[in-house]
Design a protein around this nucleic acid. Structure first.
Lengths: 193, 193
DNA sequence: GTCTATACAGCGATAGAC
DNA sequence: GTCTATCGCTGTATAGAC
């Protein structure tokens, strides 16, 4: 009686490793940890991902693709730039509600210890986010739903950094309400009085 | 000819390990790394700090003490709450200029993998910072040098998280000017128009 | 205070049977 | 696709000589 619920082993590995990476970091979990939780051996793991770096690469790519899809959805459904920003902050809130750190935020901390390809993928994730934010901020300035008081680049850096950092600190005591309040305060500074 | 410049080995160990911790994280450096850089053996290291956890504890305590002293200095020299906040952001800027992450911000990412005593010390560091910030924000509200638009607790969380997060992301590409601009934008939102 | 030597567990990874 | 077995290396930590 396999307990995989019809889910391919490759996906079960990704799910388990993803959670471990978001909780403990890249240097804080091992093939042994993942294999044990799945009830398979390390050798079986190496069949699906021949190295830990390759597994890490697949994790970033899946995470980034999901995030991109969420940004696309916001572009289609949010009525204005201010609503897009709220939706963006809610993406972070969802992750935090699962008691997890942003996968790429975690990798950002460990950046200097990562294999080069992973470094490039992490950087690309944040470049994508920054570009999207910059576009939203420019749109908000143009349509009047936002008031920037700074260059779109700088404000985008503030929003992205602010959300990642609030996540990082909130995870120490799990006070999600405080994260939510801090994020609101951050974004309220961008809404016309 | 010892190259210690009169600096006790214990301090040289702390200095080297501190830098490695701020660059690579607690799980990203080893006794072997530190010993090699200092030209001593791992066994000698164990004489000064009998376990890695004890070394980590000493690192947090020294870092927290330094930070506290810097906050005391700000309390004595800054003319008003707004100036204290600028000085606070400059503390982060100084760390970033050395291409380092905040030691406790790094440990916050790895929090779930840390020995319990280290977790407690990291939490205490952020509690101290949050308390100080709350005091400054309340002072600023009272004297009129700041306009909060939110509870001191929530604004303190926003400032602390914003600075830690901006640091985390900035370290990917080393764009210190962007950090500085984002921090300015963050604090400018607290200055009366 | 630092060394050599060693213990022992864990790591990522591979070969080859089934 | 998963297993057993094994490799070589690194990790933290300890004992005892100097």
């Amino acid at each position: 009686m396999s307990e995989d619920g019809g889910v391919p082993t490759r996906v079960r590995i990704l799910d388990t490793a993803e959670r471990m990476l978001q909780v403990r970091g890249y240097n804080g979990f091992s093939y042994g940890d993942v294999a044990e939780e799945l009830g398979i051996t390390r050798a079986a793991l190496h069949y699906h991902f021949k190295s830990k770096a390759e597994l890490g690469q697949a994790l970033i790519e899946r995470y980034a693709a999901r995030f991109s899809a969420a940004l696309d959805a916001l572009d289609e459904t949010a009525p204005d730039a201010a609503a897009k920003l709220r939706g963006y902050a809610d993406l972070y809130l969802d992750v935090l509600r699962h008691d997890l750190m942003c996968l790429c935020g975690m990798l950002a901390a460990e950046y200097r210890t990562l294999p080069e390809p992973l470094q490039a993928s992490v950087s690309a994730f944040f470049d994508t986010n920054t570009s999207w934010l910059r576009g939203v901020l420019e749109q908000g300035g143009a349509e009047g739903s936002l008031r920037l008081l700074g260059s779109p680049d700088d404000v985008a850096a503030m929003v992205l950094g602010g959300l990642e950092g609030a996540m990082l600190i909130t995870r120490l005591d799990g006070d999600v309400a405080r994260f939510s309040a801090a994020a609101d305060r951050l974004l309220n500074g961008l809404v016309p009085a």
